[in-house]
Every structure is written in structure tokens, then in C-alpha cells.
């Protein structure tokens, strides 16, 4: 049966297939609401910390952690950026959630360090101030980081 198609036609068909696969790979990502919610939660934790009440800080941290854990396990895979499709697991870099989680942990460490620096400098709302830069990095850098990782996994594929 394959004798009926030429090499050029086979190449063209394979290119169509590769192009369509790239269109799906371009959909890898995290929903925009996740980045905005994470950044808002980050600043809210900073504000709660500045209130100085141990119960408020503990409660806010627990709520933030629980909500993030529930949401992250659904969206950090990068397979459900839009409601139009779910990308196959083997198309997405399986390290994506690990890399993103590591970045979030790193931002947490940076936030604490910035908080100590601001506090040592005598800032009145050290935690809030320290949380703003990571929150901006989340909103501005998160989508770009995921896009970079998706492109890298596509090249490997």
C-alpha cells in the first residue's frame, strides 16, 4: 500500500503531523489565574506576617499551603492550561512540576532572606515588602519559565 505514495508525499505528511504536534505542545502551560493567585497569596502571607499575631500567621500559612497543594497537583503538570484540551502526559516534560516546585521553594527562601534584610534595615513592614518582589517575579517570570521548559521538552521530543 505504501508503494502508492511517493517519498515527497510521505515527508509532507510527516511534516503535517509534526506541525500539529507542535500546536499541541504550544498549549503546555499553567493557567494565568494560578500565577495571579499565587502572587496574591504570597503578598497576603507577607501582610499576615507583619501583623505579628502567631495565630494569624499560622492560620494563613496553613490555608495557603492547603489551597496551593490542592490546586498545584491539578495544574502544575502543565497539561491543563486551557479548558480546550488536556495534553498527554508523555508529551509534557515530566520534570516540569518538580522544577516549578523547586522555584517556588527557592522564592520562599529568598522572601525570608529579604524579610530579614528589610527588618535589619529597620523597615516597618518588612515581610510585606519582602513578599512583593517574589510576587512580581511569579507573575512576570512564571509563564515565561513554563514556556521555556515546554520548548526544551519539544526539542528533546
Amino acid at each position: 500500500m505504501t508503494d502508492e505514495i511517493s517519498e515527497a508525499e510521505a515527508r509532507l505528511a510527516l511534516k503535517v503531523i509534526a506541525d500539529r504536534e507542535q500546536e499541541v505542545i504550544a498549549q503546555i502551560g499553567i493557567p494565568a489565574w494560578y500565577w495571579c493567585g499565587l502572587a496574591a497569596g504570597w503578598v497576603a502571607l507577607g501582610v499576615a506576617s507583619d501583623l505579628g499575631n502567631a495565630w494569624v500567621i499560622s492560620g494563613a500559612t496553613l490555608v495557603f499551603g492547603a489551597v496551593h497543594a490542592a490546586v498545584a497537583q491539578r495544574v502544575l503538570s502543565g497539561r491543563r492550561r486551557s479548558s480546550s484540551l488536556t495534553i498527554r502526559a508523555d508529551v509534557v516534560d515530566r520534570h516540569l512540576p518538580i522544577v516549578l516546585f523547586a522555584c517556588i521553594v527557592a522564592l520562599g527562601v529568598i522572601t525570608v532572606a529579604l524579610g530579614f534584610l528589610a527588618d535589619a534595615d529597620g523597615a516597618r513592614h518588612a515581610s510585606t515588602m519582602a513578599s512583593i518582589a517574589p510576587a512580581v517575579a511569579i507573575v512576570c517570570g512564571g509563564p515565561g519559565l513554563v514556556a521555556f521548559l515546554a520548548r526544551r521538552s519539544a526539542r528533546r521530543g
Binding site: I5, V16, R20, E21, E23, V24, S83, S84, V91
Partner: peptide, 29 residues
């Protein structure tokens, strides 16, 4: 290797190639 005449026409090849990379895809997409 198994040439498939049903899949090979350009439109159906594109449809199946899209679906092959996803668990499911919305009709509108």
C-alpha cells in the same frame, strides 16, 4: 508499519495528529 488510507487524507491526518498528542480535545479547538 501499516499505511492507513482512512487517516492519510490531509484533513483527517491533521485531526488525528492533534488528537494523538492529547488525552482529549474540544471540538472548537
Amino acid at each position: 508499519p501499516q499505511f492507513d488510507e482512512l487517516i492519510h487524507p490531509a484533513t483527517r491526518l491533521s485531526i488525528v495528529a492533534l488528537l494523538a498528542s492529547a488525552d482529549w480535545i474540544d471540538f472548537a479547538f
